[in-house]
Every structure is written in C-alpha cells, then in structure tokens.
Amino acid sequence: MKNTFTRRELLSHGLAGMSAAWVAAHWPAMLSAAAHARAAAKSSAPPNLEFFSPEQAAEVEAVSARIIPTTDTPGAREAGVVFFIDRALVTFAKANQKLYTDGLSELQARVSEMFPGTEKFSVATPEQQDQVLESLDEQSPASSSRPRRRRGAAESLFETIRVDTISGFLIDPDSDRRGNRDAVGWKVIGRDPAHMFQPPFGYYDKDYPGWQPNPPDPVKTNS
C-alpha cells in the first residue's frame, strides 16, 4: 500500500490505496494540500529567462554545474538551478543584479587570464573550471562554517552563486521559485518529494515496539 503521496499525485490519482481511517483523519489536511497543488500547477509555465541573456545564463549554469556537479545522480543543471537564480534576481535578490552582471565579466577575464585562448567559462574543461572557481573561492574549500546566505556587493560572485545554487537545488519544487525541477534535488539528498508521511519514517523506528516506562526509582543524576 502506498503510504505517501505528492500534492500533484493527490490530484491525478485521487485517493486509491490510502487507508480509509487515515483518509478520514486527514481529510481537512488533504483538501488543503490539494489547494496547494492546484496553485502550483497553475504557475508552472515553461521556463523563459527573466533577467539573464541566454549567453549569461549559459555561464551561470556552467558555474552551478561545478558547485553541484552531475555525477551518477542529477546536479544543478538537471535541477534547472539557473532558472531559480534568474528569477531570484528579479524577485528576492534584486540587490544582486549588478554583482552578477559585473561578476560574470570578471569571471570571463579570469578564465582567459588563467587559460589563454579559452574565452568563456562554459567552454573550459571541468578541471579548468574547478581551478578558476578555486581561485575565486575566498574561503577554504574545506570550510563548513560559512555564514548562511551572505549577500552584498562586496561578496564574490562565486560565493553568491554557490549560495544560490544550493538554494535553487533544494527549494520546495512546488513553489514558484523555479528551482529543484521535478524535485531532483530532493531525490538526490534522499528527501521524498511528498508533503505528507505516515510512520514508520526510517530504519530505526520501523521495528520500535512502542513506549515502555523507564525503570522505577531513578537516582537523580548530577554528573
């Protein structure tokens, strides 16, 4: 029996297979989920660029594809991260427009400087691309304590694309942010794209026998 469903599946497949008791218990929730799914379906237009030129978009996409590369699983390219960034720059991240425009020119200059004869980041080899990005990464690549979503003109374009790529890879695919296309980002990290779940949730709770009281007469622990 299927025990999870996405909002879209709710509409397309109805309720077949769900247990009647569970459906009864969650009916208001399901109506609400259905409303969300309709809203999401309405807003799914074919991707078109709202800020970048096609040339700029190709470069941004190439950078994003090194931040979350395509391996045996999909990466930033397959998740359509460039469309997330493109929309971000006309919505919540308008302040970064100049950073992107100026930064992309500097990026190309850096590519030509490091690899004479190579004019665009997108045509460099993956190894060359990584070398360029390492030269732009102000922080050690082995840093995990980066502040979240640092923004501003002083930030390197690289750090901004890094943050935006990760955000665009993992954003709620049912939102109108245009990232995480077909929930590929969530699938890569092991997040079921559904928005409702029933226990058991994971490996360690599947055989949990249920709550048993603690042993009686505890000694209050102080060390």
Binding site: I68, T71, D137, V188
Partner: peptide, 8 residues
C-alpha cells in the same frame, strides 16, 4: 567542502 562532488 563547500561545493563540488564531495560536498554533494
């Protein structure tokens, strides 16, 4: 790492 294959 903050990006790349090992980050992923």
């Amino acid at each position: 790492p903050g990006w790349g294959k090992s980050f992923k």
